[in-house]
Simulated scan of single mutants.
Amino acid sequence: MSDEQSTKNAPLDELSFTVMGYISKSPHETFEAVAEPKQLSKYFTTGGAHGRLAPGAEVTWDFADFPGRFPVEVIDSVQDEKIVVAWAGTEHATAENTTTTFEFSPVDDGTRTLVTVTEQSWKTTVGGAEGAFGNCMGWTGMLAALKAWIEYGIDLREGFYK
């Protein structure tokens, strides 16, 4: 059996997912639209984002359509390249925290950006799958809302979830 075949047949220990999309702005502009709380509040955190996504910052996200302010820990941030965040996991997580990584890759000589969002730490249970699929939907929506906001100034999230 080849290494590739044995990997395909290996037991699944954790659920994770990756979503991605192209933004017609530079990596710097796109990174700032995610890292800067005033911008993030315009298209994603309908109740507001507080604190820049920088290591050591006190950051919270609030969603008017899913009430409650969520503390967000910034694990890593590399300007214009990557942001890694975590927040308290649920009973359906494989770790104490659920971790999400945003990667910003230049495309077309830096005039566009491929944004990749990867989340991990979900158990291979019904509850873990529901959490992972729900968050996958959320991050896909976030990328679409980011694109609409940064390219056209349109808030897609307004009224979307209620």
Rank of each mutant, 00 (worst) to 15 (best):
M20A: 13
A10M: 12
P67W: 07
V85I: 15
D76G: 00
G51T: 12
A35G: 06
G51V: 14
G48A: 08
G138K: 12
T101Q: 09
R69D: 03
K162T: 10
M1G: 09
N97W: 03
A129C: 01
I23D: 03
S41C: 08
F44P: 01
T118W: 01
A93M: 02
V115G: 01
L156R: 10
V34C: 07
W87V: 06
T101H: 06
P37N: 08
T125I: 05
G127F: 01
E29Y: 08
Q39H: 12
I75T: 06
S121N: 14
W61S: 03
H28G: 05
G51F: 11
G138P: 09
E58K: 12
M142G: 02
G89K: 04
E91A: 03
G153N: 10
L143F: 07
D80M: 10
L146T: 10
A33W: 09
V84Q: 08
V34N: 01
E4P: 00
E36N: 15
R112K: 14
T101F: 04
Y22H: 11
A132E: 05
L146K: 04
N9T: 14
G21C: 05
A35H: 05
W87P: 12
A144L: 13
I154A: 10
R52S: 14
M142V: 11
K162C: 00
T90M: 02
I83T: 04
M137S: 11
M142S: 06
P27Y: 09
T45V: 13
K162R: 04
V115C: 02
Y152Q: 14
K123V: 01
E119I: 05
V115S: 02
G48N: 08
A35N: 11
T116P: 00
S24R: 15
E81I: 02
L156C: 03
E151A: 11
V107K: 04
K162F: 01
E151L: 09
M137K: 12
S41Q: 07
T140D: 12
R157E: 12
D80A: 05
K147T: 15
D76L: 06
V85P: 08
I150A: 08
D3F: 13
S77D: 05
E130G: 00
F44H: 10
V78R: 15
G134L: 12
R69F: 03
A64G: 04
A54V: 14
E73C: 02
T124H: 03
P71R: 05
F66T: 05
F70S: 03
K42W: 01
D13M: 09
G51W: 14
A57E: 15
I75W: 00
R52D: 13
D3V: 07
A148S: 13
M137Y: 14
G131A: 09
E91I: 02
Y161R: 08
F102C: 02
F160A: 12
E73Q: 09
D155Q: 11
E158P: 00
K8Y: 12
N135R: 12
D76S: 09
Y43H: 10
L114F: 07
T94V: 04
V74T: 08
Q79A: 13
G47V: 08
S121M: 04
E29F: 03
T18Q: 11
I83N: 04
P71H: 05
E81D: 14
G141V: 03
I83Y: 05
G68N: 10
